[in-house]
């Protein structure tokens, strides 16, 4: 049925237009039938509502991802427990035995375990968050859903890990003859606030990582530096009580968000040994200082959680229509 003779592209008549489109034009036609601009970012609250609708996707995706994480290893899901234990073993060997940072810190093992696990939660949420968009480009391009689901599941995966880690923390605490008190329950609101904080941080780096793939390479170095500043394996007091440290540096170290979260959780779980168990007053003072919790700590926890949580969410939402670009 092909036409005789050659086809010259330039000589083809202009394509037929839809009559209604020719009449009204695109914008008016779309308005008449209630069509919406494709891929347009919804307003903030509507976006949050959409996110709530997909909550089963967020948790389902996180669980599936978590299961597949160790599917190649022979010991399988046991690694969920083994990974944090081995982590602590390494840090205990280096900072408890080789460098004897434990001096002056009561129940050093518990002190270390809390610091390592909490910081690890922040660190891995951020690193996985920064990859969450670029790694799932196929999914983003195939199905439509609020993209904030992806960094949020990255945080939830780590939250599940943190759950396993907290079992170990409780085990260590009981092993060191800590008696459970009602104070331990304060750990729960602290960890909820910390999750909000980590989630916000994950969203910030997720947007950065979606544009600049270098973020994922850079982040481990930044987060490791941050960890060494946070008193994860030593007490902040042992640094700040030295002479010649300006006051603002002390404040910055104590109120640095992860450091503050770690300090508060430690104070919830570690009880001070009595004066009698220390030989000198100076030793006892060092032990007290190592658990020093700065003023208005809880108020600042709420502040940091809201700042990072809300700020990170808004920052991520602002680029919603860009994530499919890759």
């Amino acid at each position: 049925m092909s036409e005789p003779g050659g086809i010259v592209l330039e000589e083809l008549p202009p394509p037929a237009l839809d009559p209604e489109y020719a009449d009204l034009g695109g914008v008016a036609l779309a308005a008449k039938y209630g069509l919406k601009q494709s891929g347009k970012r919804p307003p903030l609250f509507e976006y949050a509502a959409q996110l709530w609708q997909r909550r089963h996707f967020i948790t389902g995706y996180a669980t599936a991802k978590n299961r597949s994480l160790y599917s190649n290893a022979r010991l399988g899901q046991l690694w969920q427990l083994l990974t944090p234990v081995l982590n602590v073993a390494v840090y205990y060997f280096v900072f408890g035995i080789l460098f004897t940072q434990s001096r002056g810190v009561p129940k050093f093992l518990l002190f270390l375990v809390i610091g390592v696990f909490l910081f690890n939660f922040l660190q891995t949420s951020m690193i996985n968050g920064s990859r969450s968009i670029s790694d799932q480009l196929v999914l983003i391009r195939a199905l439509h859903f609020p993209r904030a689901c992806l960094p949020m599941s990255a945080t939830i995966i780590q939250l599940q890990q943190l759950g396993f880690s907290m079992i170990i923390v409780v085990g260590v605490a009981l092993g060191l003859q800590e008696t459970p008190t009602l104070r331990w329950l304060l750990v729960i609101p602290a960890l909820i606030l910390f999750s909000v904080f980590c989630n916000g941080m994950a969203m910030i780096v997720a947007r950065m990582g979606s544009v600049l793939t270098d973020t994922a390479q850079l982040l481990p170095f930044i987060s490791r530096t941050w960890m060494y500043l946070c008193g994860v394996m030593y007490s902040i007091a042992s640094v700040t009580d030295r002479a010649g440290i300006p006051h603002w540096v002390k404040l910055a170290l104590y109120y640095d968000p992860p450091a503050l979260f770690i300090t508060v959780v430690r104070n919830c779980m570690i009880s001070m040994p009595s004066r009698a168990s220390y030989a000198t007053a100076a030793d006892y003072q060092a032990a007290v200082n190592s658990l020093h919790q700065p003023a208005f700590a809880w108020a600042f926890l709420v502040f940091w959680a809201l700042l990072a949580g809300v700020g990170g969410f808004v920052y991520f939402w602002k680029a919603e229509e860009q994530y499919g670009r890759g």
Partner: peptide, 28 residues
């Protein structure tokens, strides 16, 4: 599918959000 923002002066209007099925590898 709303994955690429159009230049100014034009646009794509849809009813609901369409899905795009490509030949790329598996979803996850």
């Amino acid at each position: 599918a709303g994955l690429l923002p159009p230049e100014k002066g034009g646009g794509v209007y849809t009813d609901g959000q369409p899905s795009l099925l490509g030949i790329n590898a598996a979803l996850m």
